[in-house]
């Protein structure tokens, strides 16, 4: 039974990974496909080893391998703590128009949400809000700051 369940989970992951990479390939573009932030300077932890945020490339909402790893750990943490709910806050950088950023940041937070759902976390426990480019974590006008600002942050709502 347990073995079966694991296989089922694995299949879901495989399928969703395929779907995401297909999507990413379809939207591949000239601008910024490799500018995802990989550092930890702005990261906070929801629990030991569980990062609170994932990062995105310019104009993109696809999850990277590292992002999926982070979200997998968040899902495990949510499974262990059945009473807590989260809000996923989507953000963009200052290099896009305001309205498009609102939509893009919503899409980013939903990409994270969809991934959590594939791990069997109930949709009722996850809400989403987009802040567009309105709440940067780094105020500077540098590629590093922009990469830190393109993010989806998982926040405990209790």
């Amino acid at each position: 039974m347990i073995f079966n369940k694991n296989i089922k989970n694995l299949l879901i992951i495989l399928v969703s990974t395929l779907a995401l990479s297909a999507c990413a390939a379809g939207k591949k573009s000239a601008s910024g496909s490799n500018d995802v932030y990989t550092g930890n300077a702005t990261v906070k932890y929801l629990a030991s080893g569980v990062k609170d945020r994932v990062f995105f490339a310019t104009n993109r909402s696809a999850l990277t391998t590292a992002s999926r790893d982070t979200l997998r750990k968040q899902a495990g943490w949510m499974r262990k703590n059945k009473n807590l709910n989260v809000v996923l806050e989507g953000h963009g950088d200052e290099r896009g128009t305001r309205e498009y950023n609102l939509a893009l940041a919503e899409k980013r937070a939903n990409a994270a949400r969809d991934y959590l759902l594939t791990y069997g976390i109930s949709g009722k426990r996850i809400s989403v809000i987009s802040y567009g480019k309105e709440k940067p974590v780094n105020s500077a006008s540098t590629p590093l700051a922009w990469s830190q600002n393109r993010r989806s942050v998982t926040v405990k709502t209790k």
């Binding site: 309205e99 609102l102 939509a103 919503e106 899409k107 937070a109 990409a111 969809d114 809000i129 987009s130």
Partner: peptide
Amino acid sequence: GMTFAPRFSPDGKKIIMSFAKNGNS
């Protein structure tokens, strides 16, 4: 869900805007 990017129609009778749901606006 989030509604955004509003404007009035030229006759002022409607508001046109975006509505974002599940990552689609």
